[in-house]
């Protein structure tokens, strides 16, 4: 196990280096000269040159790259171009609100869609199964923007069941008052695609030989589904969840934006709108690292659930 984790950490290094190179390339070459962006439309050549020196982009490329790597290593990305706040400070304060919304969405959505998927897999091929699948397809076809716009308008603005937006200081108020509608909408958006996906996982398992053996033992259909099929289908479900976890951090940015939740996702949007490169760069690198660790965690969990997996 330790050897496996060490090997995986070792294998992360080239990927991390690649992410750094990609980010560096993107922000220093694709986008043109950042100095012009920062200086604005009207500025004298002296001002530009001044900013170039400040940013260090008058240096040779390898020096700039080295500076960037040092920034990554020391987790110090300088200050935001638009607010002058420390980038590390920005990220540290935005994680909490994001998780307050994200974790409940993830848990509720997963439990509900696993239950629903197991149910429709149980009655596979029936009218119920087909109707639910068609409803899921239609539900997936409506843009998540519409869910949020209409949900916020109808449930908060018109009916007044929830606050339209806002964020407070106390965790319980944030979770129970301000996050309730965002969580509800997040679950509503995620449940259809997940149910469809998990249903295919269950159907894959139902056709396996060991399910036939379980039936040949005389087990009831409930035991077959809840014990044998569910346990096996959990493997792809867990893998799937872990891999998409860091993506969700960003994925719910629309919810954060609409409900003015000061999270990572909203911060990304703001930074993109303001061309605030240090913030985008930092978030990109951190989320990439988080993704790599989530993948490692997925592999370890995989080992715990599936005895066949050899962690060498």
């Amino acid at each position: 196990m330790t050897a496996f984790i060490l090997r995986r950490l070792w294998q992360m290094l080239p990927t991390l280096l690649g992410v750094i190179l990609l980010t560096f390339f993107l922000f220093n070459f694709v986008g043109g000269d950042p100095a012009y962006l920062l200086a604005g439309k009207i500025s004298s050549p002296e001002q530009i040159a001044n900013i170039r020196t400040q940013l260090g982009i008058d240096q040779p490329v390898y020096v700039q790259l080295w500076i960037f790597i040092k920034q990554v290593m020391s987790a110090d990305f300088g200050v935001s171009w638009s607010t002058n706040e420390q980038v590390s400070q920005i990220i540290a304060t935005r994680i909490g609100p994001s998780l307050t919304v994200l974790v409940p969405i993830l848990i509720i959505e997963t439990v509900l869609s696993v239950a629903l998927a197991l149910g429709v897999a149980y009655v596979r091929g029936s009218l119920t199964d087909r109707s639910i699948m068609i409803v899921c397809t239609i539900a997936m076809s409506v843009s998540l923007l519409v869910y949020i716009i209409v949900g916020q308008y109808a449930l908060a603005y018109k009916l007044g069941w929830f606050p339209v937006q806002g964020w407070g200081e106390s965790f319980s108020e944030n979770l129970l008052r301000f996050s309730a509608l965002p969580i509800l909408l997040g679950v509503a958006v995620g449940i259809a695609p997940n149910t469809r996906l998990y249903r295919t996982f269950f159907l894959d398992e139902i056709n396996q030989d060991y399910v036939r053996t379980a039936r040949a033992k005389g087990l009831s259909e409930n035991t077959v589904m809840l014990k044998h099929v569910l346990r096996n289908a959990l493997i792809p479900i867990i893998t799937n969840l872990m891999i998409y976890l860091p993506g969700l951090l960003i994925g719910h940015f629309l919810i954060e934006r609409f409900f003015s939740i000061p999270g990572i996702g909203r911060e990304v949007i703001l930074a993109v709108e303001r061309s605030d490169f240090p913030v985008i760069k930092a978030i990109t690198i951190y989320v990439a690292i988080a993704t790599m660790f989530a993948n490692l965690l997925a592999d370890v969990l995989y080992k715990l659930v599936d005895p066949r997996v050899q962690l060498k």
Partner: peptide, 21 residues
Amino acid sequence: YNIFTAIPYLLLILAIAAVLN
């Protein structure tokens, strides 16, 4: 592939959108 999947898809898109401008 690992590099591109390490960065969440939407973040990558937004980052590129930010620099392309």
